[in-house]
Amino acid sequence: MENEFICIVCPKGCRIKVDNEGNISGYTCLRGLNYVQEELTCPKRMLTSTVKVSNRKDTYVSVKTSSSIPKDLLLKVMEELKKASVEAPVKMHQVLLKNIFDTNVDIIATKEIK
């Protein structure tokens, strides 16, 4: 059975095909090839969300995973982010949670809070 993937690496959305023998075609950059190889073995996603800033009224800081994490961890990490809080000032790319679920991936701020 031939499988078609829509690449999510960039907004171009290339259609990448995988045939019965596992040959991959249709990608227009190496990142697309890597995406499909990963999608076939261990699908990963970036996670973005917000974390409460405890010492500022009604303030949240936007955060992201420092690199993509296994798809089945997304909701578990969300639970941790809901419990977490940080004190301002927050620097751009400051690490808020280290090595989350032993993935070697950190949760980092994507915004400055003065």
Partner: peptide
């Protein structure tokens, strides 16, 4: 951009994948 906290911005312009607030930054 400040409320677009998801990533996927900047691939054409900066050749890296940024969130909205990072792009604005």
């Amino acid at each position: 951009l400040n409320q677009c906290i998801h990533n996927g911005f900047g691939l054409h312009k900066f050749k890296e994948e940024l969130t909205g607030p990072e792009y604005a930054y």
